[in-house]
């Protein structure tokens, strides 16, 4: 990330010392030990500050409306996730105008120093340990699928499911990054959500994607058949999978003209 952006962030976050975690596509992610409004020296927890900088390539009108709507949308979504008991960081504080969200920090450092996203963890296993298809991987993938099933059963759509947007820690997986989230009960929207994830897995973890995807779907199905939700859940699972097949087919038919 460039110094210009970091300087911009420092200006907005005066008196807050932070470390840089990553530069995502639309936001910078920082880590800090400072709570935005409690002043407790005993507090050892850490927080994530997500900052959506101005995008100089966008027309100011587009930029303003996107930054605001995504920041607000993300915060509301996280609030609803917390209410529904779906694991994700809790919101601590927000500044819509400047595109800043403070939230709980989930995750740890992998042995290679990277943040424990599902992507980094799978890459680490692939490169360093050659244990890509262990039982542990299967268990985690099923848990992730279950979590997404839970999300969809609450008629919530993530909008940007990738292995980078799933954090892992001792308690299991958690979802992050809700800038593109929305609410829908339509099987079509849920199927597209799954399709986006499936494609991300195919392109990011090419060698093992078919196993990963089948485990994810297994967990997804499990969420629908576990009986926490109405008896309709099973039926809606069947509908979503049918839609998913349609969406896949549309995808293959798409590149028609060079």
């Amino acid at each position: 990330m460039t110094d210009r952006l970091v300087d911009e962030a420092k200006l907005l976050l005066r008196n807050v010392s932070f470390q840089i975690v990553s530069q995502g596509a639309e936001a910078l992610v920082f880590k800090t030990n400072i709570h935005p409004y409690f002043n407790d020296d005993q507090d050892e927890s850490s927080y994530i500050i997500k900052y959506r900088p101005r995008k100089p390539y966008r027309h100011p009108k587009i930029d303003k409306s996107i930054t605001k709507s995504r920041t607000i949308g993300e915060v509301k979504f996280m609030f609803k996730l917390a209410k529904a008991g779906i694991r994700a960081p809790r919101v601590v504080s927000t500044d819509y105008f400047n595109g800043i969200i403070w939230m709980e920090h989930i995750g740890y450092s992998l042995p290679d120093g990277k943040e424990s996203t599902l992507k980094n963890w799978l890459w680490y296993l692939e490169k360093v340990r050659g244990e890509s298809l262990s039982e542990e991987v299967q268990r985690i993938c099923v848990e992730v699928g279950y979590l997404i099933g839970d999300l969809h059963l609450n008629d919530m759509i993530h909008g940007d499911l990738t292995s980078s947007n799933i954090m892992l820690d001792k308690k299991g997986p958690a979802l992050i990054d809700f800038g593109l989230s929305s609410y829908s009960a339509l099987p079509e929207d849920k199927a597209v959500d799954l399709y986006v994830l499936e494609r991300a897995m195919n392109s990011t973890h090419a060698d093992y994607a078919s196993e990963y995807n089948s485990w994810l779907l297994k967990g997804y199905e499990k969420a629908h058949s576990d009986g926490h939700y109405s008896k309709q859940a099973n039926k809606s699972f069947v509908e979503i999978i049918k839609r998913l097949e349609d969406v896949r087919l549309r995808g293959r038919k798409r590149s028609m003209i060079g």
Binding site: S22, Q23, G24, A25, E26, K55, Y57, R58, H59, I62, K119, D160, T162, S164, A200, T204
Partner: peptide
Amino acid sequence: QETLFSMLVEITERALAHV
């Protein structure tokens, strides 16, 4: 143009971050 290209640049940036 502004709308379409903003979207194109955004998804490109998403891919950059992802890989």
